[in-house]
């Protein structure tokens, strides 16, 4: 696996564990800073909606996201699943596309308990229905 070998800030794993274990946040957005390390850019509180999350994604720069998606199963019971999203909009510059794509596995493998992964390269690919479909 080709790996750009960026440093991953400890805060990234801490934020993921908070989402997974403490369960007091809805999502975490990670960004690559200075072409050298992955940091936490933003944490979404429990009250935030899926739309809040989508509108905080930049339209021309990639990001990584973990989202704790809550949904009601057919039997009426609510359930939570963690989705990893590789946001890579097609109008990003090629350098950023390359850096994020060659960093994704490095970041993702530090998070245990990811249920599904979504690669989204346009706004339509990050719509809520896509997440629902991925979780099926």
């Amino acid at each position: 696996m080709v790996d750009a070998n960026l440093n991953v800030d400890d805060a990234c794993v801490n934020a993921f564990n908070r989402l997974k274990l403490t369960k007091d946040i809805r999502f975490v957005i990670f960004k690559v800073e200075g072409e050298s390390q992955v940091i936490v850019e933003r944490v979404g509180d429990l009250a935030s909606t899926y739309q809040d999350f989508v509108s905080s994604l930049p339209h021309n720069e990639p990001r990584f996201v973990v989202y704790d998606y809550e949904f009601r199963k057919d039997d009426g019971i609510t359930s939570n699943k963690i989705v990893f999203i590789h946001w890579s909009p097609d109008n990003s510059i090629v350098k950023n596309k390359m850096i994020y794509a060659s960093t994704k596995e490095n970041l993702k493998r530090r998070f245990s308990g990811i249920h599904r992964e979504v690669q989204a390269c346009s706004v339509s690919e990050v719509e809520e229905s896509e997440i629902v479909q991925a979780l099926r």
Partner: peptide, 16 residues
Amino acid sequence: IVKSAVLSSFASGRST
């Protein structure tokens, strides 16, 4: 050394 298709895929922002 890297496989050509991996480089093209990554340069398009996709790991898959």
